[in-house]
């Protein structure tokens, strides 16, 4: 609290209070707005309406009031016309959007929105222009895939995905501080949406080229890969030889040197 008191006369304080107040208002609004009902019974038009309101509060400052984007000025955001519902669902429900602060890459975090709010936003963005829709669960549910499908999914994964996301989907480095995120624990829905929309630096893998069956096989492979146990013991995060080398020195040479010191140490003397 001392921290706050000391800085209440700071030039930025007013602006911060304003932002805070806006956030509170927005939060109150979204908490009180009858979103639950809308998606439950009424048609999409009401959902779109809700989405539009949410958009105005949470997204418009960067993406423009009608999603037309802002390409100049201090706060920039790409146009959202034509990105579709899938992109919106992916970005918002993985917490990547709204971005906390501008940077090279929007990190994944806890989403600020409820599921219904996300769907409302997605429905609104979808009205801005035609784009990929949120896939049906059947499209990404890996249940019922045969062994051959899974093996093919692995082959597709290693051909198209592992270059950035690593062989276990543990993620990897990109230029200038960017990175391909880890795929461990990512839902089938989000994997699918990422492939069809190409969020941030990720390229698009459209259905025309990588068919829905291929995508499902990849999701099935990843699911199986991540749920199966590590055959050989602790796995060190699936980072490959760097981590193994580190452990060879720490656990191998380190422990053996301790033993060597013990072997050569002169024990306690009687006097």
């Amino acid at each position: 609290m001392r921290f706050l008191t000391a800085r209440r006369r700071h030039p930025a304080a007013k602006a911060l209070i304003l932002v805070f107040a806006l956030l509170v208002m927005g939060g109150l609004y979204s908490a009180l707005a009858p979103t639950g009902k809308s998606s439950a019974d009424t048609g999409t038009s009401q959902q779109v309406e809700e989405g539009k309101k949410l958009f105005a509060v949470s997204c418009a400052s960067c993406h423009g009031l009608n999603g037309e984007g802002q390409v100049s000025g201090s706060i920039q955001g790409p146009p959202l016309v034509g990105v579709g519902a899938a992109a919106t669902e992916f970005q918002v429900s993985t917490g990547r959007m709204p971005m906390a602060h501008p940077g090279q890459q929007a990190p994944q975090r806890q989403s600020e929105f409820t599921e219904d709010e996300v769907l409302a936003l997605a429905a609104y963005v979808a009205t801005l222009g035609p784009g990929p829709a949120i896939p049906e669960p059947a499209a990404y549910d890996p249940a019922g895939l045969s062994d051959e499908d899974l093996a093919r999914g692995g082959e597709l994964f290693r051909t198209n995905c592992s270059a950035c996301h690593n062989f276990e989907g543990a993620g990897g480095a990109l230029p200038n501080g960017k990175y391909a995120p880890s795929l461990i624990g990512v839902s089938g829905l989000h994997l699918y949406e990422a492939m069809i929309t190409g969020p941030q630096q990720m390229p698009v893998f459209s259905d025309g080229v990588l068919t829905p069956d291929d995508k499902r096989a990849i999701i099935g492979y990843l699911d199986r890969l991540h749920e199966q146990p590590n055959q050989g013991g602790f796995a060190f995060g699936g980072l490959g030889p760097v981590a193994e080398g580190l452990w060879a020195w720490v656990a191998g040479i380190g422990v053996l040197v301790l033993f060597a010191i013990w072997i050569a140490a002169k024990g306690v003397k009687a006097r």
């Binding site: 051909t159 198209n160 190409g198 390229p203 698009v204 893998f205 459209s206 025309g208 080229v209 990588l210």
Partner: peptide
């Protein structure tokens, strides 16, 4: 025509 802007095909 199947390839969108931002698409990558191996």
């Amino acid at each position: 025509e199947q390839i969108q802007i931002g698409q990558l095909v191996n």
